[in-house]
Amino acid sequence: MSGNGNAAATAEENSPKMRVIRVGTRKSQLARIQTDSVVATLKASYPGLQFEIIAMSTTGDKILDTALSKIGEKSLFTKELEHALEKNEVDLVVHSLKDLPTVLPPGFTIGAICKRENPHDAVVFHPKFVGKTLETLPEKSVVGTSSLRRAAQLQRKFPHLEFRSIRGNLNTRLRKLDEQQEFSAIILATAGLQRMGWHNRVGQILHPEECMYAVGQGALGVEVRAKDQDILDLVGVLHDPETLLRCIAERAFLRHLEGGCSVPVAVHTAMKDGQLYLTGGVWSLDGSDSIQETMQATIHVPAQHEDGPEDDPQLVGITARNIPRGPQLAAQNLGISLANLLLSKGAKNILDVARQLNDAH
């Protein structure tokens, strides 16, 4: 009898209710805020589980004197976190989706994509230029951005401005803007500013005609071990179906173009009346040469937790077992079709030249 009692006690200790789920994140304040929001949602869904947040620095956090596009290494903000995932030191990792490459290392998958916040870019102005827009900034004003995508589009749109690289986390960039006289304004992701509670610093939100956004911008991705079915089931509740389908289309477009950090590629997606609209573009580094096109596809946005595919093969690095396969494939095909259209119009040449120029500098 006593033996059975011990077995029952052991089973209770090993039951999922007692389990601590370890969540990996970057150390920056924004990353911690984003991770806290994901953990809060998981806690609400699984009140019996405990969650421990483990923060670590990544290569991208450490190399702050070089433009991201020049470092010449993929997975700048993800490699150390993936290493911890691989060694079973954490069970899942919360990322900004735009930091996750469209091809993940073997053994990993994006197990959830959370509801997207505003994906557009924002302009934050130096205190002396508050009330201005990019259009009304004085001639030769210097605007800071760490992104080739932003610089290429904005140089084309605002030729009277000069664009220079600015690195560091959000706090560091804002301090550089406010305390030094080098920059009249800087460009940042609206979602990051909003998550930090800095709505009052948003001086201008850039519309798609001015600057399309990065693939996955404004959404959070939760990376897990691809074979860890328990954790895949656990994080599945975080999937937002519309965000998922938009981001599958965007990531398929980028992957098929073979774009990345070192080339200016941008997108804009919208879901309306059962249609998914995808606009994508590529630019030369100075913005003088560009190709942009829009395509659409009829896609039914499923309700969360309709029964999805059981075999769960990944699409552009994403596993969404609780979302039907048909809409996911339709979104992926839309991204591939748009990429093929741009490639047929000469996108590869623009991107190759951009890559060579970026590598040469």
Rank of each mutant, 00 (worst) to 15 (best):
T59G: 07
L315Y: 01
H126L: 08
P241W: 14
S57E: 06
A226Y: 13
L276G: 05
E89N: 13
E139T: 08
D307K: 15
V94D: 03
T25H: 11
M271D: 15
L85T: 06
T133P: 05
L134N: 01
Q204Y: 08
K132A: 10
L206A: 01
L81V: 08
G281S: 15
V93M: 09
K115L: 12
E117Q: 09
P313D: 03
I63T: 01
L357F: 14
L329C: 01
L254Q: 12
V282Y: 03
H256E: 15
M271G: 13
K74C: 05
Y277Q: 01
S288L: 13
D286K: 05
E80K: 09
M196Y: 12
D240V: 12
D307Y: 10
G287R: 07
K132F: 14
H83W: 14
D352A: 12
F129Y: 13
G168T: 01
E258Y: 13
P47L: 06
I166T: 06
Q34M: 08
K87F: 08
R150F: 01
I113Q: 05
L97W: 01
Q328W: 14
S344W: 01
T58M: 11
R173I: 01
M271N: 08
A252C: 01
V353I: 06
I299N: 08
Q332S: 15
P105D: 05
Y46S: 09
I71N: 10
I166S: 07
H120W: 13
L254K: 01
K132E: 12
D99V: 01
H268E: 15
V38Q: 01
R201L: 14
V316H: 04
Q155Y: 09
F77I: 04
L338R: 04
A185D: 06
I231V: 13
Q217A: 06
H199N: 14
F183L: 14
A214D: 06
K348T: 05
R251K: 12
G346E: 15
E73P: 07
T78A: 07
Q50G: 06
I350D: 04
Q328L: 08
R22L: 14
G168V: 01
Q34L: 05
L161I: 09
L170A: 07
E310H: 15
S57V: 13
R325M: 01
K132G: 13
Q304N: 15
P138Q: 14
G197F: 07
D178P: 01
S146C: 05
T136N: 12
Q356K: 11
L206I: 03
V93L: 09
A151S: 10
L220G: 03
L341M: 11
A112R: 01
Q314R: 01
A151N: 12
L343D: 14
L177T: 06
H120R: 13
C247S: 10
L315I: 01
V142Y: 10
D230Q: 15
S37K: 13
A40Q: 07
L42R: 01
G259Y: 05
F183C: 08
P106L: 12
K132S: 12
E209A: 03
G72H: 09
F129R: 06
T190R: 07
L148M: 14
A44D: 09
A266V: 15
F129E: 15
Q34R: 01
A249S: 14
L244D: 01
I350E: 01
T59P: 12
L104P: 08
L244K: 01
R251S: 06
A214N: 06
G280S: 04
L276F: 04
V224T: 15
L315S: 15
N358T: 15
D286R: 12
T133C: 12
L134V: 09
T294N: 14
E162A: 07
P47R: 12
T172H: 06
P101G: 05
I323F: 10
H268R: 15
L100M: 09
L134A: 08
R195E: 04
Q314H: 13
Q153M: 07
V143A: 13
S75E: 05
K128C: 09
P309T: 07
I248Y: 01
S337V: 15
G203S: 15
P127M: 03
L193D: 03
Q181T: 13
I187Q: 04
G274N: 01
S337L: 15
F163T: 14
G60N: 08
L338Y: 01
G287S: 07
K27D: 14
G274T: 01
A320T: 12
A67L: 09
Q155G: 11
L276C: 11
V90C: 11
I113T: 06
V316L: 13
R149T: 01
F77P: 01
T279L: 06
L238D: 11
I63V: 08
S96H: 04
R325I: 15
L81F: 12
S165K: 05
V124E: 04
Q180F: 03
I318V: 14
M295E: 07
T102R: 04
D352G: 01
A151T: 08
S147D: 06
K62N: 15
G346N: 07
D61V: 01
H199L: 09
L148T: 07
D359G: 13
S141T: 09
G111L: 01
E135S: 08
A226E: 15
H300K: 14
D273I: 06
E179P: 06
P208H: 11
P127N: 01
R116E: 05
R167G: 09
R225K: 04
L341V: 10
A189M: 03
T58Y: 01
T294R: 10
L234V: 14
Q275V: 13
H207W: 14
Q296Y: 10
E310A: 13
G308S: 09
N200T: 13
F163V: 13
I110C: 09
S165M: 06
K140R: 11
V237P: 14
G280W: 01
P105V: 06
R26H: 01
E223W: 01
T319W: 01
D352W: 09
V103L: 08
T35H: 01
L137V: 11
L238Q: 07
R22D: 05
Q314G: 01
S146A: 09
V263Q: 15
L42K: 01
V143Q: 04
L343M: 15
K348V: 01
V124N: 04
S284N: 10
I350V: 13
D352N: 06
I63F: 13
V38Y: 01
Q155W: 11
G281A: 12
A219T: 06
D228G: 12
E52L: 05
I113D: 04
K98P: 03
S337I: 10
L220A: 14
A122S: 10
T102L: 06
F125Q: 15
K98I: 04
V142S: 10
E82N: 10
A297C: 15
F253I: 13
S37Y: 05
A31C: 01
D311G: 14
I53G: 05
V237Q: 04
T58D: 04
V263S: 08
F253G: 04
Q180W: 06
D312C: 14
L97R: 01
S37V: 08
I63Q: 06
H83I: 08
L338Q: 04
G317F: 01
G72F: 14
V94L: 08
T102H: 15
Q217N: 01
A191E: 01
G197P: 04
G218I: 01
E250W: 01
S146L: 04
R150N: 01
L100R: 01
A360R: 06
R156M: 14
P101D: 01
V222M: 08
P313F: 01
H305A: 01
A303N: 15
K115C: 08
S45F: 06
G168F: 01
R150C: 06
E82M: 01
E86G: 08
A219D: 01
D289G: 08
D273S: 04
R164N: 11
F125Y: 15
A84Y: 08
L315E: 01
R26T: 01
P324T: 14
T294L: 09
G111K: 04
L232F: 11
G48K: 14
I187E: 03
I205E: 14
E310G: 12
R26D: 01
Q275R: 14
T172A: 13
L232D: 05
L154I: 05
E86M: 10
L220H: 03
E162L: 12
D228L: 03
E293P: 01
K348S: 14
G216W: 01
R167P: 04
T59H: 10
L100G: 01
R150W: 04
K70G: 11
A84Q: 06
V103G: 12
P138R: 09
G60S: 01
T172C: 08
A354G: 15
V39W: 06
R156K: 12
V222G: 01
K157D: 08
R195F: 04
E139V: 08
A330P: 06
N340V: 04
Q29E: 07
